[in-house]
Design a protein around this nucleic acid. Sequence first.
DNA 1: GGTCTGACCAGGG
DNA 2: ACCCTGGCCAGAC
Length: 118
Amino acid sequence: MNGARDGQGTGDESPALRIRRLVSAIPEGRVATYGQIAALAGNNRAARLVAWVLHSSSSENLPWHRVINAGGRISLKPGRGYEEQRHLLEEEGVRFDAHGTIDLRQFLWNPADTSPFL
DNA sequence: GGTCTGACCAGGG
DNA sequence: ACCCTGGCCAGAC
């Protein structure tokens, strides 16, 4: 009933916008998973959208490298950004094991605990 | 304007 | 441990 595009008013932001905001909130030295961001944005099944937002918003100043998949691994393939993402994370102190996996128990971002210590 | 795809995820066989 | 399916949103053709 609102002629004014009801829905995307002031209170409801576009999912993509919320995702960008959440990603930019990931602290340095921490990582978040696509599904986690999606859940925080309100859609726990919109992990795919998160991926789309990131590769589509390359112009944004988002810490896109802090977003990895649920397996604790980088989703980008070698030669397609994998090295760059890994390098950026290692510079922040995020460590990879021999399998190229990040220990989520140690580096996963906990929104409830913004403390850099853990 | 329908169809496909994407840096995903969880569940089922 | 592997393959398939359904679900989410937005853009490209």
